[in-house]
């Protein structure tokens, strides 16, 4: 292909219009640097396209000028060391080229920079806030757990007290019953300091025992209450004594229809059919 044909093929127009691939464009540029006619043709085409483009000239809003200049200042930094009188920068008077290596961050459009800054500040505040709230929440949770624990304890305590109270109130009702016979059982020789009280209701036949003072029994023994009618002992049940329960009211599990005295003896665990008289602790007549 000769140069004339090459020029008139249309490839230079495509090149000038930017419609060629990178590779094709390099080929055209190689031809252009080799053949002045090609170079001149390309220039003529480019001029025509620029002239055509100029038909569509349009002015942007006047404010844009300042914003563009500000943008350049922003990129270069505000130190206006470069604002020299133009005459100093005329061709031939080459001054030291100031190459500013401003980090990319500053090259972002204005609004994004502020936006990014705002986003970072927001994130930072968020993280701090989260840490603060998390710490507070953690503290609150710990306190909550402690309070719940305390509450459970108190609930148990309360249940216990309530049961206790109910028991006591029943005891009291029974003790206060007007038909009750109150029998003081006094200490015998074996334990003169001992003392107990029996509340016996002949109508309901129920027997309650209040241990005012009895020595702790050995672990293989139990105290046993006896009702006596005309000298004949009637089993009125065994009872336990635990440390710290002195003064407790014992509701005896038997009914006694007739009695003229009560006594407590120390017996083997589970009780005996007849009282061991050598182990007679307290006794009292109605």
């Amino acid at each position: 292909m000769n140069i004339k044909e090459y020029i008139s093929s249309g490839v230079l127009e495509l090149y000038a219009a930017g419609a060629l691939s990178e590779k094709e464009a390099r080929e055209v540029e190689a031809m252009s640097s080799e053949h002045p006619e090609v170079k001149a043709e390309i220039e003529a085409i480019q001029n025509a396209l620029v002239s055509y483009s100029a038909s569509f000239k349009k002015n942007p809003r006047p404010e844009l000028r300042q914003s563009v200049l500000d943008k350049i200042d922003e990129i270069e930094g505000t130190v206006s060391s470069n604002v020299l009188s133009l005459s100093e920068n005329m061709p031939g008077v080459q001054t030291v080229h100031q190459q500013n290596n401003v980090p990319n961050y500053y090259e972002r459009p204005h609004k994004y920079r502020y936006l990014m800054a705002a986003v970072w500040v927001f994130l930072a505040l968020n993280i701090i806030g989260n840490i603060v709230f998390y710490t507070k929440l953690k503290g609150t949770q710990d306190q909550m757990a402690a309070v719940v624990n305390e509450n459970n304890k108190m609930k148990l305590e309360y249940e216990k007290i309530k049961l206790d109270m109910e028991k006591k109130s029943i005891d009291l009702k029974m003790v206060m019953n007007r038909s009750n016979k109150v029998v003081d059982l006094n200490g015998m020789e074996i334990a003169p300091q001992s003392f107990a009280t029996v509340y016996w209701n002949p109508n309901s036949k129920q027997v309650m025992l209040n241990v005012n003072n009895l020595p702790m029994p050995p672990s293989d023994k139990q105290y046993q209450l006896w009702a006596l009618k005309d000298g004949k002992p009637i089993d009125a049940g065994v009872f336990d004594m635990k440390p710290g329960t002195e003064g407790d009211m014992h509701m005896m599990p038997v009914t006694i229809s007739e009695a003229d005295a009560f006594a407590v003896t120390l017996e083997k665990k589970g009780g005996s059919p007849v009282p061991t008289l050598t182990q007679l602790y307290v006794m009292g007549k109605i």
């Binding site: 000239k57 349009k58 000028r65 200049l69």
Partner: peptide, 28 residues
Amino acid sequence: AALKNKNREAVGILYDKYSSLLFGIIAR
């Protein structure tokens, strides 16, 4: 040459001379 020397005043001149052409192309 002024632009190559990073003379910022040159940007203003460039803008005044060519902004309407460039803006016209872009807007089109």
